[in-house]
Each structure stands twice: as structure tokens, then as C-alpha cells.
Design a protein around this nucleic acid. Structure first.
Length: 265
DNA sequence: ATGCCCGCGATACGCGGA
């Protein structure tokens, strides 16, 4: 079973790239981020025609997440618990029934967090990011008690290590790569989650995002910020991970590329 | 120099992204 994550940077602007990728990569489940549209405007028909069930948690103009699945959805839960006032659409959790039993999958669009001011804790966007990461940790701890395969897949907006950017000195201090962010990401992993790229590959210099500006793609100036975090029951059945870098070469590409995990589920 | 590119949209000398 292939479970993928991809920040598409607008589903409407990306439909040609998305359908072409679905047809060739043929994932069983695809978690999408930054669909940038409301649920009613999501282009369902073209994707359903490729054999996918669709759930969305959309928002006008910004954010928005979706899950596409060849298997039917047994359960759907939009929103990350812990802050009823949070109106940003960044989390969508589903359960599908694989041949080995239920598999819980979440599409995650973790806040960017920039700008970070001189006092990080007085930076509204950065404190929102840190709060969101703490909420994700609390929720993931509760989900781990289910002792089932759990895959938290998405755009984490976290550069885990210096080797996951072309320019660690340049990035250091940014909301994606600074001590408080790394501490929160480590705390999330430390509850018992496995970062899938670390499990199977762990090379430096493998990126999932290249900025549109300044010839970043042409010069391979990228960062690795799209991740799959796995419960022990998912990690035990994990087979391998691929970054679909070639997708960045296409017409009107997203600035992110898909990351695809293979599981014996 | 926070600009360069991209998508959205009360189409803005705007905003957010990373």
C-alpha cells in the first residue's frame, strides 16, 4: 500500500500535475496540503474518475487539506483538538480498512511560523506554530494508545537537520530551522513516532521543496520539510520511501514534490 | 536591500508562502 503526502500549492492551479502524478504514481492514499479552496469548490469529479474517494477540509484562499483514497473512508475527523478558536484548516484525519485491519492517516499542514521577531515568544505566527506542534503531540499521544498503524503525513515546515538544507547557516533562525522548532519536532517524535525518511534513507541533500525564486530548483537549493511520521505498528510494516523529485520538472509545478511511503498493509 | 516567484482575489502600491 502506497501512502503519499504532497503540498500542491492550490489544487485548482495544479490539477494537470495532480492527475498526471496520480495516474503514474498510483498511490492508494494521497494526503494533500494547501488546496487553497473551500470544500464546495474542490475539483472532485476529475479525481473521482481516477478511482479515488475524497475528503476535504478546505478554507478560502489559504491552507486547506484533503485526503484521496482508493479504499473507502471508515471515519473522518477534520480539525486538530486543543483549540476551538483555531479556524485554520490544517488537519484532516481518516481511517481506512486495509487487508490487515484499520489504518489511521492524517494530512497535516503545520504552520510556517514566520516571521520570528527578536523575542520568539512575542511573535504571534511563531507561537501559533509552537502551540500547534504541542497540540499535535498531545493528539498523537492519544492516538498511539490505539496501537494501530498510524501515519501522520504532511508539510511539517520543519527542517530536521542541517543536511536537510543546502544552506544551514542561511536558514538558521528561520521558523523552519531554529532551536525551539527542532525541540518541538524532537518532542513529537520522542512519544514513539518514527520519521520514515530517517528509517529508510537518511541521506543528506535530499529535498522536498525548492523555492520558485532565484533559480532554486535549477541550482538544487532546497529543503526537506515534508515528512511521514509513523506509529510502531506502521513502522513495523513500512517497506521504503521515495521522494518524487521529477514532479518538480513538470509544467507549472508546485514548489513541493510528493513523498511516497510503501507499506505492507 | 527581505527584492527575485507564485497563487489568491473587495485584482492591491494587497497577503501568505518558506
Amino acid at each position: 500500500m502506497k501512502i503519499a503526502t504532497w503540498n500542491v500549492n492550490s489544487i485548482k492551479a495544479r490539477m494537470h500535475a495532480v492527475t498526471a502524478w496520480l495516474e503514474t504514481a498510483n498511490p492508494d492514499v494521497a494526503c494533500l496540503q494547501e488546496i487553497k479552496t473551500v470544500d464546495d469548490s474542490f475539483p472532485r469529479l476529475e479525481i473521482e474518475a481516477l478511482g479515488y474517494n475524497i475528503v476535504t477540509h478546505g478554507q478560502k484562499s489559504y491552507n486547506g487539506v484533503a485526503v484521496l483514497s482508493k479504499l473507502p473512508f471508515e471515519d473522518v475527523n477534520p480539525r486538530l483538538p486543543g483549540d476551538e478558536s483555531d479556524e485554520q484548516a490544517r488537519y484532516l484525519e481518516v481511517v481506512v480498512s486495509a487487508k490487515t485491519g484499520p489504518v489511521r492517516i492524517a494530512s497535516i499542514y503545520l504552520p510556517n511560523g514566520n516571521p520570528v521577531r527578536e523575542d520568539p515568544l512575542k511573535s504571534p505566527k511563531y507561537t501559533y506554530k509552537l502551540d500547534w506542534m504541542a497540540r499535535l503531540k498531545t493528539h498523537a499521544e492519544a492516538l498511539l494508545k490505539n496501537e494501530e498503524p498510524l501515519i501522520l503525513a504532511g508539510d511539517y515546515n520543519v527542517i530536521p537537520r542541517s543536511v536537510d538544507t543546502h544552506d544551514p547557516k542561511g536558514w538558521w533562525g528561520d521558523a523552519l530551522f531554529r532551536q525551539e522548532t527542532l525541540d518541538a519536532f524532537h518532542a513529537l517524535k520522542y512519544i514513539g513516532l518514527t520519521e520514515m525518511f530517517e528509517q529508510f534513507d537518511n541521506r543528506g541533500g535530499e529535498f522536498t521543496f525548492w523555492d520558485y525564486q532565484g533559480g532554486a530548483w535549477q541550482n538544487n537549493l532546497g529543503i526537506r520539510i515534508d515528512h511521514l511520521l509513523l506509529s510502531p505498528q506502521a513502522a513495523d510494516r513500512a517497506k521504503g520511501i521515495e521522494i518524487h523529485k521529477h514532479v518538480r520538472e513538470g509544467q507549472k509545478p508546485s514548489d513541493h514534490v510528493p513523498v511516497v511511503g510503501e507499506f505492507d498493509l
